[in-house]
Design a protein around this nucleic acid. Structure first.
Lengths: 152, 152
DNA sequence: AATTTATATTTGCCTTGACAAATATACCGG
DNA sequence: CCGGTATATTTGTCAAGGCAAATATAAATT
């Protein structure tokens, strides 16, 4: 075919589409990195483990909010990750409704293997940006996010 | 509760998470805008109509690639949008395997109503950025996308 | 021309995530 | 303390998307 209009994303693409494309590539890249290590983890699960590894034990709801995941979906992700031995649901000391989600030894060990994946992909993604440009990109995205959240 | 670690996305968040958050807010914002017009369209469907309106008739595969959607998912979206009378599947003139997807009158009229939603949300999103900064953001994202695609 | 290989679309199957209801517990005003 | 409201987690239901198989056609190779 080759008859239809040619799409050149980086030139006239609107911000919305562009951000979607970048995110999709980032997810693909990280999942590919994980796969090359012979591990079987989705991006969402990767994020959950990362949060726990970086920020320490927290509530399921806090975890859900921090990765933009629905509470119900989080329950099922926790089922899987707990079933595979990567984390534990402990009772919360001050609130009997809540859980304290924490990594197990196995989970921490897994994270040691994963820790490079994110950095490698992010480094590859930003390799054409100078240090100043990276900071600007981060700054701009932060301001855009803030503006969007203010808006409603 | 309020016992867990506090998440401050815009400060130390990694690029991957940040982009995910921005995209989620953009989608939410546009769907909300569409809803205020009394219309019933998901973000994906909005994107499909937009592509067709902006770039003219094209193949289902081209459409799918341009919005990062699986071919099978595209078939089903086309079923819905065709069923609601917004587009048509015409035979492709040079390739009998392919389709030529084009907007109907109804679809074009719908797009007239929708055309402001995207701009309004994007304007709100970028309102804290100067003209130069908007161009830089666009440029950086384009370069990041290019780098990610080169990488593999 | 025949055969192989690649591509476009559709369909079936399965997983994931959103939304809503149910349950348990916390918090707050009286 | 009691009642009402808010929050945490779980579960059911459903729609959306990814992947693979099936079919049809195109393109390339022998």
């Amino acid at each position: 075919m080759n008859t239809g209009p040619l799409v050149t994303p980086t030139s006239q693409e609107s911000l919305g589409v562009l951000i979607g494309l970048v995110r999709a590539e980032l997810v693909r890249g990280i999942e590919a990195e994980i796969a090359t290590k012979g591990l079987d983890l989705r991006f969402t699960q990767f994020l959950i483990l990362k949060r726990l590894a970086m920020l320490g034990p927290m509530t399921a709801t806090e975890l859900a909010r921090s990765v933009e995941l629905d509470g119900g979906a989080m329950t099922r992700q926790l089922d899987q990750l707990e079933g595979r031995g990567f984390l534990r649901r402990c009772p919360h000391e001050q609130d009997r409704r809540a859980l304290r989600i924490e990594l197990t030894e196995t989970g921490s060990a897994l994270w040691q293997q994963l820790t490079g994946c994110n950095e490698r992909v992010l480094e590859a993604a930003q390799r054409s940006l100078s240090e100043v440009e990276r900071e600007r990109l981060h700054d701009y995205l932060g301001r855009v996010l803030h503006a969007l959240r203010e808006n409603k």
